[in-house]
Computed example of a mutant assay.
Amino acid sequence: MPNAEHRHCVRHLHNNFKLAGHTGAAFKQRLWAAAKATTIPVFEAEMEQMLGQSQAAFKWLQERPAAHWSRSHFSTVPKCDIFLNNLCECFNAAILEARDKPIVTLLERIRTYLMLRMARLRETVWPHEVGPRIFGIVEKNSIESGHCIASYAGGGKYQVNSMLGAMFVVDLERHTCTCRKWDLSGIPCPHALASIAKSEHSPLDFVHALYKRPAYDRAYEGYISPMPSQAYWRKTGHVPIKPPVYRIQPGRPKLSRNREADEISKGATKLKGYVIVMTCRNYGQEGHNFAGCPQLG
């Protein structure tokens, strides 16, 4: 797809960044700050701080085009600002039950899952003209807009001053803001919502049409027809295709992905001691504690 915008998963980019020798919380925070930057000046400021930390780390990132991993260089056409492959992981979790089945069973499980999903989502009732998740984002941004002061400049444009001292320009007619958050996602940012409140309009009127019910209905208007079991399929008379020779691989088959060494598990209540060196209080040796001291055994 040469005309599509290609983006890289920043989490995997950070893993490769660590494998190149650039480990530590300082490098991680700077990389993610550069990835989350929505404007080029903010991105360049984060990269300059990276250069101050390590010239090698700066060069490693500079060799990867920012158009693939930083929001500051993303196109505003798709109305999508994600830079993680969570969609792939969600799909993998949905087909987890069918992944290790024979091909016909696998396809049947996926077909049934999609049939039920599309039927369920078509009947979903929305309390607002946008989806519940988008409505929650608008409500959250509305609270943050209380820290912004909008001044009308004419022609649908507003000058917005934030409590942090930054100044932005909002154009309600073109649905743009100089922070580019509204441009990227299609959901009004706090600066835009402050301007919308000043103009006494409804915030939902300025949410992009892709998040509204007509677009949702177009996505799920089709349906997958039910079908009888394999016993009722029409016989073709052809020689049945034999399955390939199956060899059982050694070890237990893996269903979940490998987690990184510094990744926090879901539902964890305690942080791992990544940088803590254990010291035995009995002999003062590092690498183990008193309970695991080999000299006490």
Results as ranks from 00 to 15, higher is better:
Gly165Tyr: 10
Tyr232Val: 12
Leu87Ser: 01
Ser199Met: 09
Ala94Trp: 04
Gly21Ser: 01
Ile248Glu: 06
Thr269Ala: 03
Gly237Phe: 03
Ile196Asp: 05
Glu108Met: 13
Arg64Gly: 02
Leu13Val: 00
Arg111Ala: 12
Ser75Tyr: 11
Arg71His: 04
Val138Ala: 02
Gly267Ala: 11
Phe27Arg: 02
Glu48Asp: 12
Arg234Ile: 15
His208Val: 02
Ile264Pro: 01
Gly237Leu: 07
Gly21Trp: 00
Met47Val: 13
Arg259Ser: 11
Leu172Val: 07
Arg30Ser: 13
Glu108Asp: 15
Glu221Thr: 04
Gln29Cys: 03
Ile95Trp: 02
Lys266His: 02
His238Arg: 05
Cys88Gln: 03
Val138Thr: 04
Trp69His: 06
Glu48Arg: 13
Thr124Gly: 03
Ile248Arg: 11
Lys59Tyr: 08
Leu164Tyr: 10
Gly297Met: 05
Lys79Pro: 04
Gln55Thr: 11
Lys181Thr: 08
Val277Thr: 15
Pro294Lys: 11
Gln49Glu: 12
His175Asp: 09
Gly146Thr: 07
Trp32Glu: 02
Arg252Ala: 13
Leu184Gly: 08
Phe290Ser: 11
His288Thr: 11
Gly273Phe: 07
Gly154Phe: 09
Arg30Thr: 15
Glu48Lys: 12
Val77Trp: 02
Gly156Gln: 11
Glu144Ile: 08
Gly131His: 01
Pro226Ser: 05
Ile103Lys: 01
Ser199Asn: 09
Lys181Tyr: 08
Gly131Ile: 02
Gly154Asn: 10
Ala45Asn: 12
Arg257Gly: 09
Pro243Asp: 11
Gly131Thr: 09
Arg122Ser: 14
Ala56Thr: 13
Pro214Asn: 08
Ala261Glu: 05
Thr39Asn: 02
Lys18Gly: 03
Leu116Cys: 10
Glu108Arg: 13
Met118Trp: 14
Ser265Asp: 10
His147Ala: 14
Val277Phe: 12
Ile82Arg: 14
Val138Gln: 06
Ile82Tyr: 04
Gln53Leu: 15
Asn289Thr: 12
His22Gly: 06
His14Thr: 00
Met1Ile: 14
Ser145Gln: 10
Tyr220Lys: 03
Met227Glu: 12
